[in-house]
Design a protein around this nucleic acid. Structure first.
Lengths: 153, 153
DNA sequence: TATTGTTATACTCTATAACTATA
DNA sequence: TATAGTTATAGAGTATAACAATA
C-alpha cells in the first residue's frame, strides 16, 4: 500500500501502471491458470496453493506456512494432511526443536510442483503483441520493481 | 494460455515478463488489498468480489455475473442476496424478458465500490523505484498488452 | 509460562440437483 | 423444449477454542 505518492503526475502514472498490471494478471488470467492447474493435477485449489508455497529444497516448518498464508495453524494441519494424502509431501521432526514439524516435498511432490509451475508460468497469448525489444524493456522495468519489492521486506 | 511461443528467446522473454508480473501482483499484493478492502468495508471477500464486477452504470443480468465468475447461477443468487442485505445493490425485472433479473448498484453501492477501488488501485510503495520516464514506458507497454487482451475476447 | 501442532467444532464459500416461471 | 433464477442440500475452505507436548 502506498503512502509516498501524492496527487502529482508521477503518482498518477504509478497508479495507472499498477492498475493495468493488476487487471492483466488478477482479473482473468490468474484464476484461469489455477483452474487449469487443478484440472491437470486433480488437486484442490487450496492444496495447490499450499504446494506453490513449498520449495523443492527447503524443509519448511508448518508455522512458517501459516505465516506466509496468514491463516490459522489449524488450517495448515488440514492443508498438509491434503498434501500427504496426495503423496506430495511429508511431515518430519525438526532436528533441534521437537515441538516443530517440518514439511518436505516428496519426489512426486517436486514433480507435481514443476507441472503446476509450468502451467502458471506460461505467458498468455497476448504477450505476442510485444516485440522482442519491447519484451526486453518490460523485463527490465519489472526487474526493478521486483528488486524494490524484495528490499521492502 | 499460450500456444504461440516455442523455445525461442522471444518466448522465454515473454515467460520471464509474465512470471514477473504474476509474482508482483498475485503472490502478495493482491490478497493484501482484498484483505484491506474487506476490513475497510466490513464486506466478506465473496461479496467484495461480486461488487467489483458490477459497474455504476450498467444493470447486469444475473446470468452474466455467473458467466464472468465462472460459477454456478445458484451462487450468484447468494452473492446478490449478500449485496442486497448490505444495501449495495437491488434486483430489478428485465424490461423485455421476464425470466431475467438485473442487478443495479444503489447509491451506497456506488460509494462502496469507489472506496474499494481506491484501496485496490493504490500502487504499492515499490512503484517508487521507477522514474517518471520509466513509468511512462511501463504504461505504454502495459497498454499494448491490454489492447491485445481485449482483442482476444 | 509461551509456543507448536492437533482435534473438535462451526461458519463461510461454492457446487449439484430439483423446482418454478417465462420464453 | 430451453433458459433464468431460486431453494435445499451437501461439500470444500477456513477460523476459533480447547488441548497435548515441548521449550
Amino acid at each position: 500500500m502506498s503512502s509516498e505518492f501524492g496527487e502529482d503526475s508521477q503518482g498518477e502514472a504509478a497508479e495507472a501502471g499498477w492498475r493495468a498490471m493488476y487487471h492483466l494478471v488478477a482479473e482473468r488470467e490468474g484464476q484461469r491458470r489455477i483452474f487449469a492447474a487443478g484440472e491437470a493435477t486433480g488437486l484442490t485449489p487450496a492444496v495447490l496453493k499450499a504446494l506453490l508455497h513449498l520449495t523443492p529444497e527447503g524443509p519448511c516448518p508448518m508455522r512458517d506456512l501459516a505465516d506466509r498464508f496468514r491463516c490459522d495453524p489449524s488450517y495448515v494441519t488440514s492443508l498438509v494432511d491434503g498434501l500427504e494424502e496426495a503423496g506430495l509431501a511429508e511431515r518430519r521432526p525438526h532436528p533441534s526443536d521437537r515441538r516443530v514439524k517440518v514439511v518436505v516435498l516428496t519426489d512426486r511432490g517436486v514433480e507435481a510442483l514443476a507441472q503446476v509451475r509450468k502451467i502458471i508460468d506460461q505467458p498468455p497469448d497476448w504477450f505476442g503483441a510485444l516485440s522482442a525489444k519491447e519484451l526486453a524493456q518490460l523485463q527490465g522495468l519489472l526487474a526493478k520493481l521486483q528488486a524494490a519489492q524484495a528490499e521492502e521486506a
